[in-house]
């Protein structure tokens, strides 16, 4: 983790109609930092994450990623997104393509790599997530854990410097959670800047540099895993942790 600020969020607001999901979010995320976002459902964790790569358009505030104000009309959001990988709860692999094609699509279509470079890089990534043998398989033929590992490989194919994880293990059978978390731990170890929305407290304790507790559209409390999990200060954090730990 370095002192360079990768993501700067100031007074972020987001409404869905009349519902204020994010009321005012302020956070700086540093290069190489692993930030785990926890909180009750409906607290705005996923919305916050989706605002960071503009899958949701914010209604107020500033988000600066690597020096680019993503709400600036002159910024090419596609270019910014190339640097931000995202992993979804429901994998969202492309069912009409096999595994290696899933991984190759973005690097080839954005002209970042030639077909053969992308294939080579794709195979390397599959090896990294332990799924080399599944390159030609279609998503429907994979288990949930395998799908999520492919999804991580696909996001890494664009060589991003930031990875966003939106409840990556919530849709998995319990016995498959471990394999996905292992891949994520290795990524963290390799110095990736990560923002992870999850309910896996074990992962948060072990891997997070900082845990952020959100509720009701605000960040209620943040700190190291020890501070948050062992000595929470805020009433709401304590009552949430009592329920999940």
């Amino acid at each position: 983790m370095t002192d360079t600020v990768k993501i700067h969020v100031k007074d972020l607001k987001k409404y869905f109609g009349k519902l204020e999901v994010l009321k005012s979010i302020n956070i700086d995320i540093h290069e190489g930092e692993v930030v785990v976002v926890i909180g009750p459902s409906g607290s705005g964790k996923s919305t916050f994450l989706r605002c960071l790569n503009k899958l949701e358009h914010s209604n107020g505030g500033t988000i600066i990623v690597d020096g680019n104000d993503i709400n600036d009309k002159n910024i090419n959001i596609n270019k910014v997104r190339e640097d931000i990988g995202m992993v979804f709860q429901h994998f969202n692999l492309f069912p009409n393509m096999n595994v290696i094609k899933n991984i190759m699509l973005a690097p080839v279509k954005t002209k970042k790599m030639t077909e053969s470079q992308a294939h080579e890089a794709g195979m390397r990534l599959l090896k990294r997530v332990g799924l080399e043998s599944k390159a030609e398989a279609y998503p429907q033929q994979l288990s949930g854990g395998q799908k999520q590992r492919v999804a991580i490989a696909r996001a890494l194919a664009m060589n991003p410097s930031i990875m966003l994880f939106d409840e990556p293990t919530s849709a998995l059978d319990p016995e498959m959670v471990g394999e996905v978390l292992t891949v994520m731990k290795e990524l963290a170890k390799a110095g990736m800047t990560m923002v992870v929305v999850t309910h896996e407290m074990g992962f948060a304790r072990e891997v997070a540099d900082r845990i952020v507790f959100m509720d009701g559209g605000y960040i209620i409390e943040e700190g190291t895993p020890d501070q948050i999990l062992k000595n929470p200060k805020q009433e709401r954090t304590i009552s949430f942790l009592n329920k999940v730990l």
Partner: peptide
């Protein structure tokens, strides 16, 4: 599907 594709920068 669209979100995954857009998130990759397409």
């Amino acid at each position: 599907q669209m979100e995954a594709s857009r998130s990759l920068g397409l």
